[in-house]
Design a protein around this nucleic acid. Structure first.
Lengths: 330, 330
DNA sequence: CCCTGCTATGTAACCGGTTACAGAAACCGG
DNA sequence: CCGGTTTCTGTAACCGGTTACATAGCAGGG
């Protein structure tokens, strides 16, 4: 068995209190005692038990982060930004992927019992669950999902850039735009659609909506199959890049040439979008996670006043999928 | 303050032992008592403290996973596979990204104190650190790095598929192959190079090695600049996809046409490789993580006998970057 | 020389659970 | 009606730390 503080105390001929003090703050122990304790500790290869410490201090020194998935580049990058800041602040990071499981609520609640605070990303659990946690006093920050009353949130701007996207498509000569994605699925999608519609209205062009079975390449490919060849829109704005990529690939096999026959845009600016020459919107993913981590830390440390809701800026990236003029290069 | 087991016991008029029993195994408590305890617990909104429980049970019910980074799709996918299995086994997952920081060893050691076991991926900490942890009795599994004596490991096959890759390049008519990547950087790279050389030898073609400054797109782009225009090899085999993608993009701006002038291959089969039509090698990333999680669990549960070293199969994916015949489609 | 104040240390009460052990109550067959 | 089980519950000792409070020793000022 591994050595405990009592073993060290016995060996050094001091009390456990002294050992504890020597470990946490060497300056409050006499030089001689310190030396004896350190000797005993290293002899026994002693490492203070984090559990004992945490129980006594009544803090976990850990934060949790909950996300739907990690297979896309999206959440991975957010998690990474989060981890970078959290570990800098000396907190461990617990992750939980919900994968749309129905037991998600229970899993999140259990997770909340293991950490000092939680960041919840995207469509993972219902607002009810979050309100329940907040009521129990669990420090909470949401990211990439609609703000919940009284809970800090961080998200990326949607409507404004979507509006700019509509303007861009109109500038490229599009008269009819199809929005590919299910607004019911997430508030981000809703906001993107709303912005797109606003921009389209202003430019005097029309927007139709086509829901998808899933927000991945497969969903995009399926949507492509469903499009009537005779009646293609001028442009298809997809709710994310994966949809757009799947769509473009499927369209190509049908002989539709992008952007000549049809403009296509995505959202997220994942790495593959660059190589597919896909026009898209870049989000500050890393920052999203990092900001969430800082908000959470402020909250835990009691430095927050009112709930904050930060919206980070996004950027339209025009590539050749929506802009024949851009040629084949970026 | 949140309710403790003693509050519940007092309210239900029973001892804390009874409350504990009622919470963990309702069947060993009389129906009447159970009801009273449950009532009291729900009145007080009682949730057992994980910390108290963990200390008493002397287990964390959590595993850690250490990786260099999460920005590429590589580790993200492995982590995800790991998380899926671990959470199924009822264990929380703690993550730690080392980012090549020198303090990594200390961070890993601290992490080890918070979980029942650890999976260590790739170039994160030295073998010495791992041996130290193993000696302290920390259950350990390594993945995507060379096996350490006495420690379970999981990795993906390198040499065999690299050999197949060399054969493929020779079949495509390449006489000279340049390997792009620094073998000193990781054992995976070493093995890939060794396999490539073996295959090239067998096919009677030559291999040169060009180290890179970094294993990302930037590194690939820099390497492209360094190539003498007059003296291009027939093929460039890159140590990973990002290098290959960066290289191809840079070559294109120089007017070099792939695959007409030069064949290029990567390794990993990240999503962007598909869109760039890059020949590459697919690794079972999700499986890598999942297998590591199972190994670790077996170890912790005491079900292991001898250290195991599993090598998962990989698959050569030929696309048009190395195969003019493939045309522009996959 | 005594009193005061400071430093270094020990004692013991936590933190919030689990569980070995023991005792009480109820139930059983003979 | 009695001894032996079985079932349920309580007592108390952990798990491994932190820390409030008490105390001893010692230096310094009056």
């Amino acid at each position: 068995m591994t050595a405990t503080i009592r073993d060290v105390a016995r060996r050094a001929g001091v009390s456990i209190a002294t050992v504890s003090r020597a470990m946490r703050d060497p300056s409050i122990v006499s030089a001689q005692t310190l030396h004896r304790v350190q000797e005993a500790a290293s002899d026994l290869d002693y490492t203070p038990s984090q559990l004992g410490r945490q129980l006594a201090e009544r803090r976990h020194a850990a934060n949790g982060i909950v996300f739907p998935d990690l297979s896309g580049p999206y959440y991975a990058e957010v998690v990474l930004g989060y981890e970078a800041v959290a570990s800098e602040l000396g907190r461990a990071v617990l992750i939980l992927a919900t994968h749309g499981r129905p037991a998600a609520a229970e899993m999140v609640t259990r997770l909340a019992g293991r950490c000092d605070g939680l960041v919840v990303l995207g469509p993972t659990v219902s607002d009810t669950v979050l309100l329940g946690l907040a009521a129990r006093g669990v420090p909470l920050v949401t990211a990439a999902r609609p703000p919940v009353a009284g809970v800090d949130s961080v998200s990326a701007e949607n409507a404004g850039t979507a509006r700019a996207l509509a303007t861009h498509l109109a500038d490229q000569g599009a008269r009819t735009v199809l929005f590919l994605g299910d607004p019911a699925l997430s508030s981000d999608v809703q906001e993107r659609l709303a912005g797109l519609e606003a921009g389209a209205d202003a430019a005097g062009i029309g927007v139709r909506v086509l829901p998808v079975s899933s927000m991945d390449e497969e969903g995009g490919a399926r949507a492509a199959e469903g499009l009537a060849s005779g009646d293609l829109p001028d442009a298809i704005a997809c709710a994310n890049d994966e949809l757009a990529l799947g769509l473009m690939t499927a369209l190509r096999t049908r002989g539709v040439v992008v952007p000549r026959d049809l403009l296509v845009t995505g959202w997220d600016d994942i790495m593959a979008a660059r190589y597919a020459e896909l026009t898209t919107v870049r989000q500050p993913l890393h920052d999203l996670g990092a900001t969430a981590a800082r908000f959470l830390d402020d909250f835990i440390a009691g430095r927050r006043s009112e709930p904050r809701h930060e919206v980070l800026p996004t950027e339209l990236i025009v590539r050749s999928s929506s802009s024949p003029a851009k040629g084949d290069n970026q």
